[in-house]
Design a binder for these strands. Structure first.
Lengths: 342, 342
DNA sequence: CTGAAAGCGCTTACAG
DNA sequence: CTGAAAGCGCTTACAG
């Protein structure tokens, strides 16, 4: 309640209470064996002055700020920049935030610290969550070099990396989707992956090849930059549907590509799902609102974020838990764009 | 790349480059008139050692961390704790994060710092965004007392407060909804508000009374705790629909209440919208997926968050912009639960 | 053009 | 039971 502009510091409290800064610190943090009367007086004075310990000073001294960070990778996609439909990221972030708060941490949303223009605050956290790291991710390298605790999310279990991670079983996801499409009558399934060099794209492609070989299906893989969004999916779709060996089903890892493809199919006079079945590898608002609605894998971002936050917070304690941690089993939301034959 | 466990500090760089810490600091921050050769050498050594300035030390010294915070008020609602359908909060947070990053800030998601169990990191930010402050909000009091910059969001313009805010014209929103319902044939409109003492609830109720009086409509206001969610809306709906003066339309400020009410109506054999029209005062996933879909006000959380972040960042500069800032004009998403007569 | 010293606001061994 | 001193890693007047 002090009328001065300056914020009260531990020094002010010490002076007013007639004790040393050491005593104030101990009293307020409940450390040591202080005289009960002293403690009470210090607390009273602190309340009077509206004293709040400076989190930065404390953090500097203790090498612990009480903050974990979620790294936001560049969102170059024209579609995603508006955040409309970027379900996965928002849900992941929201759940990570709640989980962090429950553990007594705040969640810092930072840009990739390896970017030249990243503010220094992006390196202020006690630990980091890195979603879907790339092969040879330089951010992962930076964090390891610094000895900063971090948790990667979305790493394939069969490539179990030598760093803490919440894994994502992309191989079984892929089989789940392909089997579903085959059950619905598909015989020529095209896979459209993204171009980022992460396990999601790599393992999905590998699993697709294995599955198609085993089931004697033709192989057709298209890699399409994630950032092209709906427009990219639309263009790629037009090309794909003109080809002689037109597929009767497409598995698009990216939701926006799937929506663009569905649009292209309809423009070409094809009925979805009768002439072309479509499944997206991640869910988004656009999949739920498109006509017809688009089947998609539910990656359960909330569950995955909680596991990541819990693991990271655990790594910051004296008794670090073991890893990797298996992510939630993903489920297929069957919608109008693919239907089981009856 | 140092193999030691310790992170390189400015001292290490100074020693290795054979200059003082002062010089390293100036060289790395491009300050003063240093010899170009010195600067180059210092930068080289810094890169060699993988030196990254400690954000906390810098922040402590400069009283500026490069972080703005978004306060997360307690989410007591059973429904919202799962984050399913809490569109508003997630979209707001996502857009605020992107906007902050564009301005060179990171966004910290913190629990209410006035809560006893809030970690001290919740007070580490340079500025705060407080969404929908309560009347006599103690968090607002705390921030003002500390002299910490903050921006409130969702304050009625007619109550323009003596603090920076992005306002929300609840009065015209209310009229928009009531007129829409009247246009659709409603003659007895009940208003269901929340119980939080914020401008949203207060102004909506006041505007409703004014509008109904002016149009000679009966008045029926129910206040229902926001935290009761869909279940609370369902219970309140059952009671409301049993009454002699059953309404033919309900304006529910909370999306979850609206969904619960719609459910109750259908259980009672009422057709929505024929027997009972419903509009929600905020949009959420549940409004878009319910059968029938539920009309709702789109509060444009992304736009509102951007305005708030921009204003807050502006307040942290030497040339603070003026305020209050008018929030985005809200729009009504007309869906199945209310339809204009043809 | 460069450096020594002070200080941001805390906590933590260590004395007494 | 309490305090003086050192130090976390920076930046910033101020000398030289």
């Amino acid at each position: 309640m002090s009328a001065t502009g300056r914020r009260a510091t531990i020094k002010d409290v010490a002076a007013r209470a007639g004790v040393s800064r050491t005593t104030v610190s101990a009293a307020l943090n409940g450390k040591g064996n202080l005289n009960a009367g002293t403690v009470a007086r210090v607390r009273e004075v602190a309340a009077e002055l509206g004293y709040e310990p400076n989190a930065l000073a404390r953090g500097l001294r203790q090498s612990r700020l009480g903050v974990i960070a979620l790294v936001i990778r560049p969102l170059d996609d024209v579609d995603t920049r508006t955040l409309e439909g970027v379900d996965y990221f928002l849900r992941f972030a929201g759940a990570a935030a709640l989980s962090a708060l429950e553990h007594g941490y705040a969640l810092l949303l930072v840009s990739d610290p390896t970017r030249g223009d990243a503010p220094s605050s992006s390196l202020a956290a006690d630990g980091y969550i890195v979603d879907t790291p790339l092969d040879g991710d330089i951010l992962v390298d930076l964090l390891r070099r610094r000895g900063t605790p971090f948790v990667a999310v979305g790493v394939a279990p069969e490539r179990t990396p030598p760093f803490p991670a919440v894994t994502h079983d992309v191989a079984s996801d892929t089989e789940l989707v392909l089997s579903h499409l085959a059950d619905c009558g598909a015989r020529r399934i095209t896979l459209i992956t993204g171009t980022d060099r992460n396990d999601w794209n790599a393992v999905a492609a590998a699993s697709y090849r294995a599955w198609t070989k085993q089931h004697d299906f033709p192989v057709d893989v298209v890699a399409l930059n994630e950032a092209t969004g709906v427009i990219g999916g639309h263009e790629a779709g037009l090309t794909l549907l003109e080809s002689d060996a037109r597929p009767d089903a497409v598995y698009c890892l990216t939701a926006h590509h799937a929506a663009g493809l569905a649009q292209a199919a309809q423009e070409r006079g094809l009925n979805v799902p009768r002439d072309l079945q479509i499944v997206a590898g991640s869910d988004a608002e656009v999949c739920r609102t498109f006509n017809p609605t688009i089947s998609a894998l539910n990656l359960h971002p909330e569950a995955s974020a909680r596991l990541a936050a819990d693991l990271l917070v655990g790594l910051l304690t004296d008794h670090p838990p073991s890893w990797p941690v298996a992510g939630p089993p993903n489920t297929l939301e069957v919608r109008g764009s693919s239907r089981v034959r009856t």
